[in-house]
């Protein structure tokens, strides 16, 4: 599976052997992010994972238990994690949010960037933590010290416990309810906030514009990975016998994600003065149109799927 969202990738890994995980991603193309200090950021105290908890429970009719208690200290939560790690058995899954800065397998962030990130704890034994990271496709061992640092120094915090025993794929009605609840043709926070920021940089030139513009859009690449969710929706709604497989959706989604990656580079070029802010704005507008067309196509496909399911 593509890298989409660390929590969703982890949940999908746990769900997949038992049930269809694709519906869980519907709507995640518009996962909220924050705009703080003139920059787009995918993590913030303003953002919670409550939407995913309710989505999971609506689709799978099972509880996604939040074991991390924000009212407790880090020490108390670590103790809770340790106890839960001892009770992990087949069919039960323990997820925890760590700071990527301390995870040596992710070379880009290791000792470089602090970023919260969800992983799965497989086991804890004799001071060793057996960890699975579906997002980065890594499985291995963390020492007690690495785990301790990654847990305690994580600026946010979070964790879930999931029992997939007797888990079934979502029913059609639940999928329709979830999709229609999350799908919004006009919504595109990424394009909207990006354009707003670019316009602000055009109207109020910053003293240190190079650093400001680079920082503003440094997380665009990570945020845009969520657009890969469209592929799962195209895939899911194309499966009916009445509808031919739609591979075109994949190419268009790939073009959109790559377009946002290119935007990230263009922003750095703009900060250096080798690309104009007008061009940056134009690119964001172009990506907004692309995504709107993709959404229209997906909505059309969904309606066909819904009709086919009713006959």
């Amino acid at each position: 599976m593509q890298q989409i969202h660390c929590l969703l990738n982890s949940l999908a890994h746990c769900i997949s052997p038992k049930a269809d995980a694709r519906p869980l991603f519907f709507g995640a193309w518009d996962t909220p992010f924050a705009v703080e200090e003139d920059r787009l950021t995918y993590f913030s105290t303003q953002i919670t994972n409550e939407t995913y908890v309710s989505m999971f429970e609506l689709l799978y009719e099972k509880k996604l238990e939040t074991w991390y208690d924000y009212q407790l200290s880090k020490e108390a939560n670590y103790e809770r994690l340790r106890n839960l790690a001892e009770s992990v058995t087949p069919g039960k899954h323990l997820l925890v949010q760590l700071d990527l800065y301390y995870l040596r397998y992710e070379t880009r962030s290791f000792r470089n960037i602090h970023q919260p990130h969800f992983v799965i704890i497989l086991q804890q034994q004799d001071g060793k933590w057996f960890l699975l990271d579906p997002y980065f496709a890594w499985e291995g061992i963390l020492t007690e010290e690495e785990m301790y640092c990654a847990f305690f120094n994580n600026a946010l915090g979070g964790g879930f416990f999931l029992d997939t025993e007797n888990l079934l794929s979502p029913l059609k009605n639940a999928v329709c309810a979830q999709f229609e609840q999350e799908f919004a043709l006009e919504r595109n926070q990424l394009a909207h906030e990006t354009k707003k920021l670019v316009r602000r940089f055009m109207d109020e030139p910053y003293e240190d514009s190079k650093a400001v513009i680079t920082k503003a859009f440094s997380q665009v690449g990570i945020i845009s990975k969520r657009k890969w969710c469209y592929v799962l929706a195209f895939d899911y709604f194309s499966e009916s016998e009445a509808i031919h497989s739609d591979r075109q959706g994949f190419d268009e989604v790939e073009k959109l994600v790559k377009g946002w990656n290119a935007f990230g580079y263009l922003a750095i070029r703009a900060s250096m003065g080798v690309t104009s802010l007008d061009k940056l704005l134009e690119k964001a507008e172009q990506l907004e149109i692309q995504e709107r067309q993709l959404k229209e196509k997906l909505w059309h496909l969904y309606q066909g799927w819904r009709r086919a399911q009713s006959t």
Partner: peptide, 25 residues
């Protein structure tokens, strides 16, 4: 990514070529 863009700019100036948007990957 910042270093890569710096490298791109060096390349463009030295070889007098230009990278299109869709090549910025």
């Amino acid at each position: 990514s910042v270093m890569l863009v710096n490298l791109m700019v060096h390349i463009e100036q030295h070889y007098q070529i230009f990278y299109e948007d869709d090549e910025l990957l």
